[in-house]
Every structure is written in structure tokens, then in C-alpha cells.
Design a binder for these strands. Structure first.
Length: 485
RNA sequence: GGGCUGCUAGCUCAAUGGCAGAGCAUCGGACUUUUAAUCCGCUGGUUCUGGGUUCGAAUCCCAGGCGGCCCA
């Protein structure tokens, strides 16, 4: 770096500017490729262009230099001839370092070998890179460095750039699909008085002027359903939620949820739109509805399987389970299958744990798991055919939970009773359990129409479409321990 | 939280307990059609940190830091 700083001083001493204010380009590199991609080898066009990008490779041939430049759209080769640019500028080009940003003027041409190039007649340094790039061939593989220095990762790793393009295309696709169904997008508070809508520990913060504790939201649900009460009918939000839990390949403390609420429908409409959202997203982000999940081909165009949680467990363990069964029987089954039971758990919670232990990992092909026990679903409506179950589903793909939805509970008195059960669990020591949200109950008392709701873990979908097993690969700046400098 | 595992030059990686090395990058030189250009030459180290064992530690032991994988 010392040498490069010295180079900056030298440029300034000669009256140059290593960090100029702007550069006006005429084309992106992709535009040049689109317009001239089919030139015969050895062609020189009369097309004069101005392009800008980062220099990634330099092949110095004495009086002729080839350099590879990249902008956000594509890469192109620069053809820099001493005879064309002149002796002094040629010498300056030679002083460029890998990583420098340059703007060049020249004509579009192809070399004898047919490589599309810009024959440079003028160039200017746009920004001097003083820190060397990682290895030009092997790149940057150390995961710690890749996530801490995402900028360097994005410079050298095509796969990293691709993952975030897929993520962008997926989110954009979700918005298009929802727009086509006349949903409106809203933004609700991130700072909450109470953490509700999910079973999780919140981040706690403090508002100075009001001198009171606040929490970061753990879900979007309760505010969006207030809007259904308000008459919005179809509403969604794509937003960051925060859960004060462990960090793993599948969990980041802050992650992105999409939640939608659809009045006059129930969980069947919501399952249908879940399939549609995923199909469109796969098509828009990857160009195909067939995705690869750890070597297994998954065709999202095939209607997703639907199966009740209790039936999936029975398939695995050969014994029928139901939330109405005696608690001791449920505990015995849990013990047989290596599930450690907390004494505060009821049968419903044990069934969920049994499901996770025995059935979840096998759900590689898209599967809507339905009929969650009431105990673990405080905001979902009871199944119209079984009072112990709810009209709820979770979508699993590749053994991972992707989405969660249900027919929304809209009876204010039943909701109050469910909240009170949560509060009891909380008082009994479950610090992930919710509390009674009086304002939400007041909203329900004004009347919420029959409604279906959905929550999608957007990072999980991005992982699926990008073909990665770590959530850090689809979050630009994942949460890490502080670096020691 | 537990088990396993990794941390060596800017990057990617070597090195039976016995002189800390290679490739790329950097630096100097040659080259007007290269494609990770090629060729010649030179630099570059708190081996994550702190202890310990040893005549001698990148290597073995202990503690800590930061990752990864698996499990909870």
C-alpha cells in the first residue's frame, strides 16, 4: 500500500487528480456487448464510446497492453496500444494497479482472436485503489473474510454477486405478484411496546424522551391485521424483523419477512398464493421453476403436497398422535424418539417437537404441513373439523421451513383467552411466550373480516433459489462477532 | 451450550518437534494480439494472542480470540 500511496502523491505532483469528481460514460459494458457481441474477429468499428469500470487483470505486452475491466453489467477487454495513446499516457497506464477504477474513451473492436475490446485512445484514473485485490485466480474463499469484507467478496466472487442478484429478482417478483392481486404494500413500526406475533425473544432498547423500554419487532403480523380491521382487505409488508437468538447457517438475528393478509379468504387461498409467489420468484430469479436442492431436483410447478402434521408423524413413527391424547402418552413417545421434554409443555408442543425430530428433515419436495395444534398457534383459527387443531400450514422445502400461514383468528374473546394462555406460559417461565395485547384485542372488537394470512422467510427463499445452505450467503452484511483490529 | 475442526506473506495454500516455503499479487527487466498472458530476476513473516513442555515449537499441552461443520 505504501507504494500505491506514493503513486497518488506522484500523480498530484504532476498536477493530476487520483480521485476526480465524475466521468460521463456513453455505454455500460453490457450495452456494448449487446450491440457488438457478434463482430467478426479482427473488426474495427467506427463506434466511439466512453466506458468506466474497475481494472481486474492486466496483460502487459511491452508496447501493447490488454486489460480486463468490469462494470456492474459485464466485463470487457481494453486494448491499449502505445502507438495509439502516445508514449506518456501509455506509461501512465502501465502504472495502474489491479483494482483501480478507470474511465476510457475509444472505439469498439475485436482482436484477431475475436475478443470484443475497446481500442483505447484516452483514459483517466477515476479512483485509485490502494489496497491490493485478493488472488486474481483463486479469489477470496475464507468465509470469515468474505462476510466481514463483503465489498472484497463482491469484487472477486461472481457467485456472491449472483446470489444478491437472485435475491433482488426474487423480492421484485414477490412485489409484482402481489401487485397483480391488488395488494397494497405498507410499512408498520419496527419499534414496538410489546413483542408479538411470534414465539421469540426480542431485542430490548430504550426510548429516551418517553423514558421507557421498547423492543424491536419479532413479526409483522399484529399491525398488518389491524389494517385488515381498518378495511385494507389486501395488505403486505416486506420488512426486517429481529429475534434475539442464536446465529447459525439458518438464523441471523435480523432477517427479512414478507407477510400478507387477505380478507374474505382462509388458509386455502393463502396456500395457493404461496405456490404462486414461489413459482414466479423462481422463474423470475433463475429462469426456471425447477430448482436444485442439495442435488435433488425440485419442480415448483408441481402442486405442493399437503399433509397434516399428525399424519406425517404417524408415517414416521407408526403410532397415531393427537393433541387430545393424554400428556403422559405424549411424553412417553417423545422419550422414545429422543425428544427432550420441558415440563411446561402440553401435548401440542410435544407433537410439534416430535414432528421436528422425526419428519421435518425428510420434507425435501415442497410440502404444506397443516393442522398445527392449537397450543402452539395462538393467532390461528381452530380447524373447522377438529377443535384441537388449527387451520394453519407451514411450507417446507429442502427440509427447511419457508413459510407459515393460517386462517386468522378473529373472535376477540377467543383471542383474549389464547393471549391469556400465552401470558400464563410466560409467567411460568417461557420468556418467548407472548403477552395480552390489549390494543390488538380492541381492534378485533371492531370486527376483522374472515382473513387468511401468510409469512414468508425471504432469506430462506433466497437460499433456496441461490442454491446455498447458509443464510449468510444471502444477507449482504450478516451479524458477526466484532472484529479485532 | 456441546463435539469436531481451522487460523502460516496482501490472496490461495505447503512445511516427521530440527534453516518458514510455493503459486498469484507487489517490485525491477523483456515482449504490439494477450485471455489466470509468457519469460527472467527481486522483495515480502508478531506462523491469531498469551502461557507451558523441550536443547529446539508453525507443529505438542493449557487458556483465550475469531471462524467453519455437526448436534442441542
Amino acid at each position: 500500500m505504501t507504494r500505491r500511496f506514493a503513486r497518488i502523491d506522484a500523480i498530484r505532483a504532476e498536477g493530476g487528480e487520483p480521485y476526480p469528481y465524475r466521468f460521463d460514460r456513453t455505454h455500460t459494458l453490457a450495452e456494448i456487448r449487446a450491440e457488438h457481441g457478434d463482430l467478426e474477429p479482427g473488426t474495427e468499428t467506427g463506434t466511439h464510446v466512453a466506458v468506466a469500470g474497475r481494472v481486474l487483470l492486466i496483460r502487459d505486452g511491452g508496447k501493447l497492453i490488454f486489460a480486463t475491466m468490469r462494470d456492474r453489467s459485464a466485463e470487457i477487454q481494453l486494448f491499449v496500444s502505445k502507438a495509439v495513446v502516445g508514449d506518456e499516457p501509455f506509461g501512465e497506464f502501465r502504472q495502474l494497479d489491479l483494482g483501480d477504477w478507470v474511465g476510457v474513451h475509444g472505439i469498439v473492436m475485436t482482436t484477431r482472436k475475436g475478443e470484443l475490446s475497446i481500442k483505447v485512445d484516452r483514459f483517466e484514473l477515476l479512483s485509485k485503489a490502494v489496497r491490493p485485490l485478493p488472488d486474481k485466480w483463486r479469489g477470496l474463499t475464507d468465509t470469515d473474510t468474505r462476510f466481514r469484507q463483503r465489498y472484497a467478496d463482491l469484487i472477486v466472487n461472481e457467485q456472491a454477486r449472483r446470489a444478491f442478484q437472485i435475491r433482488h429478482a426474487m423480492i421484485s417478483s414477490f412485489r409484482r405478484t402481489l401487485d397483480s392481486h391488488d395488494f397494497i404494500e405498507v410499512e408498520t413500526p419496527v419499534l414496538h411496546m410489546e413483542a408479538g406475533g411470534a414465539h421469540a425473544r426480542p431485542f430490548v432498547t430504550h426510548h429516551n424522551t418517553l423514558d421507557m423500554p421498547m423492543v424491536l419487532r419479532i413479526a409483522l403480523e399484529l399491525h398488518l391485521k389491524r389494517l385488515i380491521v381498518g378495511g385494507f382487505e389486501r395488505v403486505y409488508e416486506i420488512g426486517r424483523v429481529f429475534r434475539n437468538e442464536g446465529i447459525s447457517t439458518r438464523h441471523n438475528p435480523e432477517f427479512t419477512m414478507m407477510e400478507l393478509y387477505w380478507a374474505f379468504g382462509d388458509y386455502s387461498e393463502v396456500m395457493a398464493i404461496t405456490e404462486e409467489l414461489l413459482r414466479n420468484a423462481a422463474q423470475d430469479a433463475t429462469g426456471s421453476m425447477v430448482i436444485d436442492v442439495n442435488g435433488t431436483s425440485v419442480d415448483l410447478a408441481t402442486p405442493f403436497r399437503r399433509a397434516r402434521m399428525i399424519d406425517l408423524i404417524e408415517e414416521q413413527i407408526g403410532v397415531a398422535v393427537h393433541p387430545s391424547m393424554p400428556l403422559d402418552d405424549a411424553r412417553l413417545l417423545a422419550d422414545e424418539h429422543g425428544v427432550k421434554v420441558n415440563t411446561a409443555w402440553g401435548t401440542g408442543k410435544i407433537i410439534e417437537e416430535l414432528f421436528e425430530a422425526t419428519a421435518e428433515a425428510d420434507l425435501v419436495q415442497p410440502t404444506f404441513v397443516t393442522g398445527h395444534p392449537v397450543e402452539i398457534s395462538p393467532l390461528a383459527r381452530v380447524d373447522r373439523n377438529d377443535p384441537f387443531l388449527t387451520e394453519r400450514f407451514e411450507l417446507f422445502v429442502g427440509g427447511r421451513e419457508i413459510a407459515n400461514g393460517y386462517s386468522e383468528l378473529n373472535d376477540p374473546r377467543e383471542q383474549r383467552a389464547r393471549f391469556e394462555d400465552e401470558q400464563s406460559a410466560r409467567d411460568a417461565g417461557d420468556d418467548e411466550a407472548g403477552r395480552v395485547d390489549e390494543d390488538y384485542l380492541r381492534a378485533l372488537e371492531y370486527g376483522m373480516p374472515p382473513t387468511g394470512g401468510l409469512g414468508v422467510g425471504m432469506d430462506r427463499v433466497a437460499m433456496l433459489l441461490a442454491g446455498t445452505n447458509s443464510i449468510k450467503e444471502v444477507i449482504l452484511f450478516p451479524t458477526l462477532r466484532p472484529e479485532v483490529f
